[in-house]
């Protein structure tokens, strides 16, 4: 096969994959620019001359502002805090698993596995009842705690896989060369471990950012409701108008961070997701 022919075939395949991966995003992006009167046109793109920023105005500075911006703040805050806590706990845990010899290593890893396949909805009912009794219902903390059940297990597995590949002898070598314990750790180990920790944080953030079940079950007002949950409660500008445009615009805004992270850190995310899957 000539390389020219090969290139054409691969370009064709690449176009197919791109359409597969990006078409639904393009679809909702296009809907987000449609004016209310244009929504029922039955066309993919907004009618010529009818594309509008109205929907974005509505959720960022208009009527739906209160609903959307508070949800965005909640989503960012809660997902980031849940990610940081999970990554800190998982870093300590994965370090112990990769580096130290102690009984119960397998139990910790197996527990992480079991927690990650746990049906989320089974945790919701008891938490709903408990949170209402102790005042955690509809608060940030009331979501951060259950989010750990999503972010912590995968963080432990991914980081343990990363840490197993670090050549820890470097630390001793640095110490032999006269570095103090702290210097050896900071200069030799941190630069090797940091990419893994960072990648794990991205994956954990995606998972927390995606949550819907906890978001709608454990919140009731704007004080803690996250974006995915808020989207389900959007209403149109008037009672007779479907919130299609506003929901699409909001959907695009919360997709931007995902696309940015993917564009910037594609290599790290793929290695994080596949490395943990390889037997270590």
């Amino acid at each position: 096969m000539t390389s020219g022919k090969q290139k054409i075939i691969w370009s064709g395949i690449a176009v197919l994959v791109l359409i597969y991966a990006l078409f639904p995003v393009a679809s909702i992006l296009s809907t987000s620019f449609k004016a209310p009167s244009d929504l029922t046109s039955g066309k993919f793109l907004p009618s010529s001359g009818a594309s509008t920023l109205e929907n974005y105005q509505q959720i960022l500075v208009g009527d739906a502002q209160g609903l959307f911006l508070s949800a965005l703040r909640n989503s960012i805050g809660i997902a980031l805090i849940a990610t940081v806590i999970a990554v800190v706990l998982a870093t300590l845990c994965a370090y112990a698993i990769a580096r130290l010899d102690f009984p119960g290593k397998k139990i910790v890893l197996t527990t992480a596995l079991a927690v990650s396949i746990f049906p989320v909805i089974s945790i919701v009912t008891p938490l709903f009842n408990l949170w209402r009794n102790i005042g955690l219902y509809d608060t940030w903390l009331g979501l951060i705690i259950p989010y750990l059940s999503l972010t912590l297990p995968i963080s432990i597995w991914t980081l343990a896989a990363f840490f197993r590949q670090i050549p820890w002898e470097l630390e001793q070598a640095a110490q032999v060369d006269g570095a103090t314990t702290w210097q050896a750790f900071r200069k030799a180990i941190v630069p090797l471990a940091a990419p893994g920790v960072f990648t794990t944080a991205i994956i954990a953030f995606f998972i927390a950012w995606n949550d819907f079940v906890y978001g709608i079950s454990l919140t009731s007002t704007e004080s803690a409701r996250t974006v995915p949950a808020a989207l389900a409660f959007f209403t149109g500008a008037s009672q007779f108008e479907a919130p299609t445009g506003a929901i699409s615009a909001a959907a695009i805004i919360v997709t931007i961070p995902v696309v940015l992270l993917v564009l910037l850190f594609q290599r790290q995310i793929v290695s994080g997701l596949t490395q943990g899957a390889v037997k270590g």
Partner: peptide, 18 residues
Amino acid sequence: RTAILVPYGIITVVSAYA
């Protein structure tokens, strides 16, 4: 790989609306 990661990272609710 970048393209493939978009559906992976996107919020399920957003995908449902799309």
